[in-house]
Design a protein around this nucleic acid. Structure first.
Lengths: 258, 258
DNA sequence: GGTATCATCCTGTCTATACAGGTTGGCCAG
DNA sequence: CTGGCCAACCTGTATAGACAGGATGATACC
């Protein structure tokens, strides 16, 4: 079952090689990438659908096969597409997989998959560190900490609950941000250069709060990533990142230096 | 065949495409990648050093510039190199942003904590690959595979259930081992050098078998690490590593920048 | 019916060539 | 010495053409 035929494209992409239009034009392989992402985000193609073959895209978009190939290969690297040699290229299924313990901006990750990012702020508070938090952030017990609790969503579905504690002595003004417009990551990396990070990964059973905020199924486990980041030898922030077990996995390749 | 008669040069790479050697030859851009990684791991080049330009590598390695370009671009994407348009390509700083999951011997891990390691062999069987397993190991459906199911214990308590599938065409004699005396890891790294590994990490709910073998609490989630390792371009083994959520976590720390 | 073969399509890789635009260092004129 | 110009080099992108090898369906043969 091959399903959908190629949705007639409005012919070629940018004004071909019109030399230099005043404003910078995205590279062609980027335009091909956007075109395919558009087919997915518009709903024209959904998971498991076959996308037009490289040669079809060559004809409809008026670019060379190597250019199409690069666009599709990168989308496959990003997990958006699945390529099967000799068969075709398909829209990957929904399971989200992020890179191994990497410190990245979740909004960028979601957008790179061609999906809509949104955030919901659950709570923003200033609190006093208990013994565990004080040890985790390297501050005195009872020190003042800023705490945010934010749900990051992909296409409106919860992808991560982020419980974050920030040491105001290192980065002041954290709670003044509008976290529906800027992610904690974006603010913090600008405020304090990231120099060291520590991760732990655990599987946990969700409590009632988690089930509610992440809209979890009854029999769904949670992947918990706990992260601390340092700048200038001091802990900038500690975060608990909770992910729905059925829709999220870490993945990555490891290549020993030859 | 042999389209690529290579204009031989001093330190060319593989013997071009010598038809079908029994073992698959890595693509040329992969060989370029390995060559550059070798310069770094050998200490010939260190952080901030400039690496040979694309055209130099073209001359030294006897490949086309597009092939070199792909290798370097991918290494830059991985954060190994830093490319500056118009200037050159440099070895990047030590990585702060990513931490690969390493492949380690669980017996060493346990012993390094000063604890007693023991293993219980649950099953050892030869079986035929179904479609999913065939895809995972890159073999034909119905191909023969060797499977081991082993519980690794720390001080007598289950720490990991390892479900492992081995391609006997790559490493024969896997099931002949006494896995209470040698771990699958120890046998396999000796039989086939580890050249690449892929991991995914998920949180899952345990089924009855898992609860029994890992002696899990009723409300305990499971951390599932799925790993594939390659040698000479072929999948040596695929493993499902199940860990009790309450007693296991992955962790990693990144060194500060110089 | 079953089976073997072949044409066709697909992705994956590789090459040779080309042009763009940025950077750098040297050379020359003022 | 300074400033401007330019050649040489670098990466980034794009193209056309080619072959390899897997997958697939049609066709011819037994």
């Amino acid at each position: 079952m091959n399903a959908r035929r190629s949705p007639q494209s409005p012919a070629a992409l940018s004004p071909a090689t019109a030399t230099a239009t005043a404003t910078a034009v995205a590279p062609r392989y980027r335009q091909v990438r956007s075109h395919v992402l558009g087919l997915i985000s518009s709903g024209t193609l959904v998971a498991h659908d076959r996308i037009p073959s490289e040669n079809e895209l060559v004809r409809t978009l008026g670019v060379s096969r190597m250019t199409v190939n690069r666009a599709l290969r990168e989308l496959a690297d990003d997990g958006v597409l699945l390529r099967v040699s000799g068969v075709g290229t398909f829209v990957a299924d929904e399971r989200v997989h992020a890179h191994p313990l990497e410190v990245r901006n979740i909004a960028d990750e979601v957008r790179s998959r061609g999906h809509a990012y949104s955030a919901r702020v659950v709570t923003l508070t200033t609190l006093r560190a208990d013994a565990a938090l004080a040890a985790r952030l390297g501050v005195a017990p009872d020190a003042s900490l800023q705490h945010s609790s934010i749900v990051h969503c992909e296409n409106g579905r919860p992808l991560q609950l982020e419980d974050r504690y920030v040491n105001p002595a290192v980065v002041p003004g954290y709670l003044k941000n509008d976290f529906t417009r800027i992610t904690p990551y974006e603010f913090l990396v600008r405020a304090a250069p990231l120099q060291q990070a520590e991760h732990t990964v655990q599987a946990v059973m969700p409590d009632a709060r988690l089930r509610r905020l992440l809209k979890l199924d009854a029999d769904e486990a949670c992947l918990l990533i706990r992260r601390r980041t340092w700048s200038d030898g001091r802990v900038v922030t500690a975060a608990d990142l909770w992910h729905p077990g059925k829709r999220y996995e870490l993945s990555g390749t490891f290549e020993p230096l030859a």
